[in-house]
Simulated assay, not measured.
Amino acid sequence: MSLINKLLAGTVKSAPTSTDKVLVRVYLDTGGHVTDVTIRKSCGDPERDAHAQREIMAMRFASKRKGAKTSHNWHDLTYTFHE
């Protein structure tokens, strides 16, 4: 399980159904800010997909270091809706 999925898993409040998830690809800059979000697998509802994108754009993650340099790259994660 990736670090991002572990962080998001800690926010789950109830058991989701399979239609309550969106698979997204997130691009993080060197400071851990989300700079781009693309939908890889939709939940089937464009409004909920857009909601997931907005929520993820507002998130911030720990910066990732490779030696003395920070890295920025794409990460896949699953966004789960909470009813």
Rank of each mutant, 00 (worst) to 15 (best):
G44T: 07
S71W: 09
A9W: 05
M57W: 03
N73S: 11
T38V: 12
L3I: 06
K69D: 12
T80C: 08
I56T: 14
A52C: 14
T70V: 08
G32K: 05
L23W: 06
H33F: 08
S18M: 09
G31K: 15
T30W: 05
L7C: 04
D36S: 13
L7E: 08
A15E: 09
V37M: 04
D29M: 06
H75M: 04
S71F: 09
T78A: 02
T17K: 13
Q53T: 13
L23F: 02
P16C: 01
Y27K: 15
V37P: 02
Y79M: 01
R25D: 14
G10N: 05
E55L: 09
N5I: 03
I56M: 15
G10Q: 12
K13I: 06
S14Q: 08
D36H: 14
V37S: 04
T17R: 13
S71G: 06
D36I: 06
R60H: 12
H75T: 02
V26C: 06
G32E: 07
H82S: 07
R48L: 15
H75Y: 13
T19K: 14
D29V: 06
L3K: 11
D36P: 00
W74E: 04
W74R: 11
G67V: 07
T70R: 09
R40S: 12
H72E: 15
G32C: 05
H72I: 07
L28P: 00
S14H: 11
S42F: 14
D45C: 11
R65H: 07
V24M: 12
L23T: 08
K41W: 10
A68C: 08
V26Q: 06
A52P: 15
T19R: 13
H51S: 06
A52Y: 08
V22G: 03
G10H: 01
K6G: 00
W74V: 09
A68F: 13
S42I: 14
D20P: 04
T11V: 05
Y79E: 01
R60T: 15
I56P: 08
E55D: 12
R48H: 10
P16F: 00
A15Q: 11
E55K: 02
K64P: 03
L28G: 04
D76K: 14
K41N: 11
A62P: 06
E55S: 10
V24G: 03
S42T: 15
S63R: 05
D29N: 15
G31I: 11
A15P: 13
R60A: 11
T11K: 11
Y79V: 02
M59C: 12
H33D: 08
L8K: 03
V37L: 04
R25K: 15
T70C: 07
V26H: 05
V12G: 00
K13P: 02
Q53V: 15
N5L: 03
L28W: 01
I4W: 02
N73Y: 13
Y79W: 13
T35Q: 14
A68T: 14
R60G: 03
R54H: 10
S2Q: 02
W74G: 02
K66V: 07
Q53Y: 01
D45G: 00
W74C: 00
